[in-house]
Amino acid sequence: MLALHYQNDVLHADGRIRVGIDDDASRAALVDSAARLLAAARRSQWPIMHVRIAFRPDYGDLPRNIPIFRRTEAIGAVKDGEWGAEFYAPLSPLLPLDSPREFVLKHTSISAFRGTQLDQLLRQHGVGRVVVAGVATHSVVEGTVREAAELGYEVVVVADACAAAQRATHEASLASMALMAEVTTLAELAAANEKESS
Rank of each mutant, 00 (worst) to 15 (best):
I48S: 01
I48C: 05
M49W: 03
H50V: 00
A54S: 07
F55Y: 07
F55D: 00
P57M: 06
D58Q: 08
Y59T: 02
G60S: 14
L62S: 02
P63I: 00
R64V: 02
P67S: 04
I68A: 10
R71E: 06
T72D: 01
E73T: 00
E73C: 05
A74C: 04
A74G: 11
A74D: 09
I75V: 15
G76F: 12
G76H: 11
A77N: 07
V78C: 11
K79D: 01
K79N: 07
G81Q: 05
G81T: 00
E86R: 14
F87R: 08
A89Y: 12
P90C: 12
L91H: 09
S92C: 12
L94W: 10
L94S: 15
D98P: 15
P100G: 13
E102V: 03
V104I: 15
L105H: 02
L105W: 01
L105A: 04
L105D: 03
T108E: 08
S111C: 05
S111H: 07
A112R: 01
R114I: 02
G115H: 06
G115P: 03
G115I: 02
T116C: 10
T116G: 11
Q117E: 13
Q117F: 08
Q117C: 01
L121W: 05
L121G: 01
Q124W: 09
G126R: 13
V127R: 02
G128A: 13
R129P: 00
R129C: 10
V131W: 04
V131S: 01
A133L: 09
A133R: 04
V135K: 02
A136C: 15
H138N: 15
H138G: 11
S139Q: 08
V141I: 01
E142P: 05
E142K: 15
T144D: 06
V145D: 09
R146Q: 14
R146L: 14
E147W: 12
A148N: 08
A149L: 05
A149Y: 13
E150N: 11
L151P: 15
G152N: 09
V155I: 05
V155E: 03
